[in-house]
Write a protein that binds this DNA or RNA. Structure first.
Lengths: 245, 245
DNA sequence: CGGGGTAGTTTTGTAGGATAAAAGTCGGAA
DNA sequence: TTCCGACTTTTATCCTACAAAACTACCCCG
């Protein structure tokens, strides 16, 4: 403390996830997702977690409260905290999905994500084409433009790609579709990490997206469905190629 | 396992939701969902919530930790807790959906739920028909049998109906579909409350469900999709009739 | 006169202790 | 034997104190 403190040029801006209770939530959450504590089992009590992580009981309790809210466990006096059955888990939660992903092999995880996309996105595209607002269309077009100007297989491309699909979901104007965005984010991020340029038709990416934009712009639900389906078919090809490689 | 030992009917069995911090989470959560504190706005600080609800700061903090985990807000020292943009909200969470439902008119809520079902369930049915396990088929058949033996428009019927559709989702063998079960639960519960026997073809309910069971049993994906779609068409008719009434 | 660092201020974050309430277990008395 | 009440364990709640973050504003020094 008596030392002269050098101030870094940029404030560290620690993530909100670097708090003690977040670390604890992640630590416990991961152990649940990876099966260390299977559904129905009893967790160590709060004092024990505190010792394990060198944290106070207060911090442990806040972590457990978080996991509670995500449906991973329930706590009762004298009993302790018991892991809930998997069907209660909120797998679409950002954190839970991250822990889940870490506990699974990348391939399995990616395939199940992609499967969800095949179910959801065509339906969302139909709705989007039918009732997107001008602003929502503009957001979609902006994301597409950013994809065009991004380098192939770059971070920027993935970011714009994600934004494209989120914009499509948003344009469907059904709020309950929005939480699914996490699936798309994870799927594309995971693809980027896993299928390092196994793309079968890399030159098809932009035309396929362009077709979606056209369909949504011209408010043609069926065309939108087909365009999105074609897009997902292409993604599937890449995925299969990467899995086999 | 001495079932001879008849225990007197144990009284209260207070819900885990009756805890102080849960009350607080619900109180704050509702105020966020109903727009009292719109996205981007700053919430009262912890001490103020404590006074409002007559609770300690500890309880308030645990409540806020819960809401934090559901994506409704983020907290930072010196700043306070700020409501997150809607697209971060975990609308598929049980609690969040309940608060959301309370803040919306029943009709709008129900229509958007039904829309999601139309997107998801046919796709789930295809997967279920393709790869359900014998046990999963049995669960589906059990739910159907319970529907048959239940009184029309009874609590038991709704419960079996929900179980039927959850079993279908589960049979798709993609964990990420499971969290959607909440949509079905809410939709059917809401239908039950809202469309008190406006059913257009009440006699069709069981045959329509029977067709789904047959398709899944015979592992016919396309038949399953059609059967589920027909089922949803029927539900839609009931819904429209109720909305117009 | 201006810029930058620094002290102050507010709010959340963490710690630790004390007590209450829940929900089992077990033993003793009617 | 049966039932009731102490005992026990664990979470639930409250309290107090202090640490850390991040914004404000001012003062010192060039």
């Amino acid at each position: 403390m008596g030392e002269r403190r050098m101030k870094p040029v940029r404030a560290p801006r620690r993530q909100p996830g670097s708090r003690v209770h977040s670390e604890l939530a992640a630590g416990i959450g991961r152990r649940i997702l990876d099966g260390t504590y299977p559904p129905g089992s009893l967790l160590p009590n709060e004092a024990e977690w505190g010792q394990m992580f060198g944290a106070s009981r207060t911090a442990v309790r806040e972590a457990i409260r978080t996991l509670n809210g995500k449906g991973l466990l329930v706590s009762r006096p004298k009993i302790g905290s018991r892991v809930e059955p998997r069907e209660r888990w909120n797998l679409l939660d950002r954190d839970v999905m991250a822990w889940h992903r870490a506990a699974l092999d990348e391939r399995t995880f990616l395939l199940s994500l992609q499967e969800i996309r095949r179910i959801l996105e065509p339906g969302a595209a139909v709705l989007a084409a039918a009732r997107r607002s001008p602003a929502q269309l503009a957001a979609l077009e902006r994301a597409f433009a950013d994809m065009q100007s991004a380098e192939v297989s770059s971070e920027a491309m993935v970011e714009a790609d994600v934004r494209f699909h989120l914009a499509l979901l948003a344009a469907a104007n059904n709020e309950l579709l929005v939480p699914f965005g996490i699936v798309i984010e994870q799927a594309l991020a995971s693809m980027f990490a896993y299928t390092t340029s196994h793309a079968v038709h890399p030159e098809q990416l932009l035309p396929l997206h362009a077709a979606v934009v056209r369909a949504v712009a011209s408010q043609s639900p069926e065309a939108a469905r087909k365009a999105v389906t074609a897009l997902l078919d292409d993604t599937d090809e890449t995925l299969v190629a990467a899995v086999e490689a």
